[in-house]
Amino acid sequence: GKMTGIVKWFNADKGFGFITPDDGSKDVFVHFSAIQNDGYKSLDEGQKVSFTIESGAKGPAAGNVTSL
């Protein structure tokens, strides 16, 4: 299901970062391709987001990332 969290950091040049889930679980990798907006796909440190957990090739990653 949907989770919420805070963006820990995001490197716009490399197109990835990490989200710290509100439930205290392990930080989740986020790739820019998972960001659900029409414009420039980037996130800001400290931004609140909702997301799902998808299993990627390198382990769990955030999917369906939407800013709240």
Rank of each mutant, 00 (worst) to 15 (best):
D44W: 12
A57E: 14
G56R: 13
V65W: 00
S42L: 11
V65I: 04
V30F: 11
H31R: 05
T4I: 10
G17L: 02
Q36V: 14
A61W: 12
K14L: 09
L68D: 05
K58F: 07
G39S: 11
F29E: 05
V65D: 01
I19H: 00
D22Y: 05
G1N: 10
F29C: 05
G56E: 07
N11T: 03
E54D: 07
N37F: 13
N11D: 08
Q47T: 10
I19V: 05
K41T: 08
D27L: 03
A57C: 11
W9Y: 09
Y40L: 12
N11I: 04
G17V: 03
V30M: 06
S50E: 10
G39C: 09
Y40R: 15
N11Q: 06
D22R: 04
G5C: 00
G5K: 00
T20P: 00
E45K: 15
K48R: 13
I53Y: 12
I19T: 01
V30Q: 02
Q47R: 06
S67K: 14
G24D: 04
I19P: 02
A12H: 13
T66F: 08
T52M: 08
D23I: 08
G56V: 05
S50M: 11
T66H: 13
K48G: 09
V49Y: 01
F32S: 12
I35E: 03
G39T: 11
V30I: 05
V28M: 04
Q36R: 13
D38G: 11
V30W: 01
G56M: 08
G39K: 09
F29M: 07
N64S: 08
F51L: 03
A34R: 10
S33G: 07
A62Q: 00
N37K: 15
F18W: 10
F10P: 01
T20G: 08
Y40Q: 13
K8L: 03
I6K: 11
M3T: 12
I19Q: 01
G56Y: 07
E45W: 08
L68R: 07
S25H: 10
A62L: 01
D44I: 11
P21Q: 03
D27P: 09
T20N: 06
H31F: 02
F10C: 02
F18V: 07
G24L: 06
S67R: 12
I35N: 04
S42Y: 11
G59E: 06
W9M: 08
N37G: 15
K48A: 13
V30P: 01
A61F: 15
T20E: 14
S25A: 10
D27W: 01
K8A: 10
D23K: 08
T66I: 10
S67F: 14
I35F: 06
F10M: 03
N11S: 13
G39N: 13
K48E: 14
S55D: 10
F51P: 00
F32K: 15
D22E: 09
K26Q: 14
A57S: 13
G46Y: 04
K8H: 06
A12W: 07
V65S: 01
T52N: 10
G1D: 14
T20C: 14
P21W: 00
Q36S: 12
E54H: 14
L43M: 06
K58N: 10
H31T: 04
A62M: 01
F10N: 02
A57K: 15
S67E: 13
K58G: 09
N37A: 15
K41D: 07
F32N: 12
S67Q: 14
S67G: 12
L43R: 00
G63D: 10
G24C: 07
K58L: 07
L68P: 06
G63P: 02
E45V: 12
V28T: 04
W9K: 08
S25E: 10
F29T: 04
N11H: 07
D23A: 06
Q36Y: 06
I53M: 13
Q47L: 07
K8Q: 05
I6R: 14
N11L: 06
A61P: 02
K48S: 11
N11W: 05
A12D: 13
S50P: 01
M3A: 09
D23Y: 05
T20H: 08
D22G: 05
S42W: 07
A34N: 10
T66S: 11
G59S: 05
K26V: 12
V30L: 08
V30S: 02
K26N: 11
F32V: 14
L68C: 10
S55T: 12
S33K: 10
F29L: 05
Q36W: 04
G39M: 09
D27H: 04
V30Y: 03
N64K: 11
P21E: 00
W9F: 13
K41V: 06
P21G: 01
F18E: 08
I35T: 04
A34I: 01
P21C: 05
A12L: 09
K8N: 06
T52Q: 09
S25W: 03
T52R: 08
Q36H: 11
N37L: 12
G15V: 01
K2I: 09
D44N: 12
P21I: 01
D38V: 12
G1T: 14
I6C: 13
V7M: 03
M3Y: 11
S42F: 11
S55V: 12
Y40K: 14
E54L: 14
F51T: 01
N37P: 09
K41A: 11
V7G: 00
M3G: 07
S42Q: 12
N11A: 09
I35K: 03
K2R: 09
V28A: 04
P60R: 14
I19E: 01
P60I: 11
K14W: 13
T66R: 13
V30K: 01
A12Q: 12
Y40E: 14
D27T: 04
V49Q: 00
K8M: 02
P60S: 07
Q47A: 09
F51N: 02
D22Q: 06
T52W: 07
D13V: 15
D38Q: 12
W9I: 05
K2E: 08
K26L: 07
G5N: 01
V49P: 00
A12G: 11
K58M: 07
K48C: 10
Q36F: 04
K48L: 10
F29G: 04
S55K: 14
S42R: 13
M3V: 13
G1R: 08
T66V: 14
S50A: 13
S67A: 14
I19M: 02
F29H: 06
I35M: 05
G63Y: 12
V65H: 01
G46V: 00
P60L: 12
W9L: 06
L68Q: 09
A57I: 12
G59V: 04
T4E: 07
A34P: 02
G5H: 00
L68I: 14
Q47N: 06
D44A: 14
G17R: 00
V49R: 01
D23V: 08
N37E: 15
T52Y: 08
P60M: 10
I6Q: 12
F16C: 07
V30E: 01
D27Q: 05
G1W: 06
G15K: 06
L43S: 01
V65P: 02
A12V: 11
G46H: 04
I35R: 04
F18T: 04
T20R: 15
D23L: 07
S50H: 08
F32T: 13
A34M: 04
V7Q: 00
V7P: 01
V7K: 01
V7L: 03
S33H: 05
L68G: 07
H31I: 00
G39I: 09
M3S: 12
